[in-house]
Nucleic acid binder design. Structure first.
Lengths: 336, 336
DNA sequence: AAACATGCCGAAACCCTTTTCGGGCACGCT
DNA sequence: AGCGTGCCCGAAAAGGGTTTCGGCATGTTT
């Protein structure tokens, strides 16, 4: 059974060399395709290596040339639905570039984060990606780290650090532009927890876009929580005024609003258009009608963070904040 | 700025020793708390180490004593909502035991999986956890791997391998037991994709529990897809017979059923009780009434997999399939 | 005072791989 | 025959840390 023999010594280059009747130097050259080996010697070595299923010890190699081909991914949490696509994007970019990802979850705890940082540096990661949980800026990991760091989702408070963040203001803007383009004029906004920068940023974008078109938001920004329940319970107040579109701070809120409108017999999109943020597939999937949503491109964010980290490793990244532009995914709820 | 100086050589034990005026051997002993060092020499070394923020190179250490303190987490995908809690549970267990996790996503591709396996073995992981995407058994990673492997979610086809899997049959049973305990007798079952073992296993559990109580399922098992849409569209057929409870193959299906019942004016739980599987928080959160659901304890599954891997490393795990018992989370939809 | 014990430190080997450099061998040319 | 010239191969060092063992100096005992 394959779970047996856990103590068996791993096969080393010396074993291969010995069995092939050559020196370790020759074996190394044969395996790595160096020139100074005769074809038949090379073949003999390769055969033995194959037979023993030899794998060069990446650690020994790393200790030589100073970089390990590993990067640390230090995430604030794994619960939220935001870290995951970022993680996927980063894993994607790294996988292609032959780097491996060491994953650490600090679970919102700064102490744990520092602990993980210590072990990651001890393992000589070539670089670090730090994934935040809110878009609010966060203090940098440390002041004099020996490896480059890219902050994503939450930027570093030091603007000189490399950060990749979503454009929440633009997202709000895009939502309104889309509604305006489809003929809506009386637009209300219900959002999530006011302590989140994501909520206030999106609201700022909504208002800015409205103002540019000489319009005003209908009613106040109704901050609450990022839940369907809030979406449902806030709908009554929304409908007290004449409204033909509702911008919802998240897909969950939007879903709650859709439900409440449905119960009241308000037709979507005929009477009122509804738009959400995040384009969160499992939440979108169940909406009736299908929900138009702003996709923040989190996966692209993870990829960019990985790319910038690579660039930093080669000294080709000057730091600074980079933003990822969201895009609208048009579905039925805005009358597409 | 902290992203600078990426090429700066990392501080080594030799640097510390030199600055403290001792040999590397003494520095090593001082830092690792070995006895043969005078207290003041030790303090001097520790001060220097602190000042240089020295971190012992884990690679060099690993190359010595043969194990790295890293484990590979080879997941079939990151999209699904099942791999994530497993990953969290495993990361949790490892973080406590001072092992680091190398994360690889094979994205359902066997070739990619083998590639990742190669790099992980090259990095000399001490062990591997393989996370599947379906509960159907999968072929083992390889026949003669140098490190222990624990398969989770999807077991290995080799029963001698160490596997940790959810009890889907039991889950179906528990759902029915709960409904019976709350006085229901006419129970229907709507489920997801029939090609998933999770669907048929749960259905088998449902039927077995019914039979034990001398009851029969109302209507056929209505297989479809794991979606709200299927839940909604299958409801009409369900109601053609006299039904006082519906077991739904997933929370999404349950939610669709709840919606459809609501639209038809059927009261939940007064007229019909509804129960789901997976206890998937974001889906549960929006349900009206709050949905009773069977929690498969995925996080515990990840933890157990990690624990068994540790046991294997110490030769304390004989292999074999272990199951994780689900539990019912009672909420309003079953009249709690 | 001499022998001995003890405590502290350093030299060197080891782990595994890569790379440089030097040496041996065969062959061709004169 | 002797010399030069490539071609292959192997010895050795490097990289960072741990560990063993030997040595030195001091303190203790007789």
């Amino acid at each position: 059974m394959s779970t047996e023999a856990p103590g068996r010594r791993q096969v080393t280059l010396r074993d291969v060399a010995q069995l092939a009747g050559v020196s370790v130097a020759t074996a190394s050259k044969a395996i790595n395709g160096k020139a100074e080996v005769s074809p038949d010697t090379r073949q003999r070595v390769l055969d033995v290596a194959e037979r023993l299923s030899f794998r060069p010890n990446a650690l020994a190699r790393a200790i030589l040339d100073g970089h390990t081909g590993t990067v640390g991914l230090l995430t604030h949490d794994l619960e939220g639905r935001f870290s995951l696509p970022i993680l996927m994007g980063a894993e994607d970019a790294f996988g292609a570039g032959r780097a491996s990802v060491l994953l650490c979850d600090s679970r919102g705890d700064a102490i744990r984060e520092q602990h993980h940082l210590g072990t990651l540096l001890g393992r000589r990661v070539d670089g670090l990606i730090v994934v935040g949980s809110q878009t609010d800026a966060r203090p940098p990991l440390g002041s004099d780290l020996p490896v480059p760091v890219v902050y994503t989702y939450a930027p570093s408070t030091d603007p000189a650090d490399a950060s990749v963040v979503p454009e929440n203001v633009t997202a709000g803007r895009i939502a309104v532009e889309h509604l305006l383009a489809t003929g809506r004029r009386r637009i209300a906004h219900v959002s999530g927890d006011v302590t989140y920068a994501a909520a206030t940023d999106r609201a700022a974008g909504v208002d800015a876009a409205l103002e540019e078109h000489g319009l005003e938001r209908v009613g106040p920004v109704r901050y609450g929580s990022w839940s369907e329940a809030w979406g449902r319970s806030s709908t009554a107040a929304l409908l007290e005024q004449d409204v033909d579109a509702v911008v919802c701070g998240s897909d969950q809120i939007a879903r709650g609003v859709l439900d409440a409108l449905h119960d009241r017999g308000v037709r979507v999109p005929e009477d009122v258009a509804v738009i959400g943020f995040d384009n969160w597939e499992p939440m979108i999937a169940g909406c009736r009608p299908a929900l138009t949503s702003i996709d923040m491109n989190f996966q692209a964010m993870g990829r960019r963070a990985a790319e910038r980290l690579f660039a930093s490793l080669e000294g080709r990244d000057g730091g600074g904040v980079e933003t990822i532009t969201p895009r609208v995914i048009v579905r039925e709820s805005t009358g597409g």
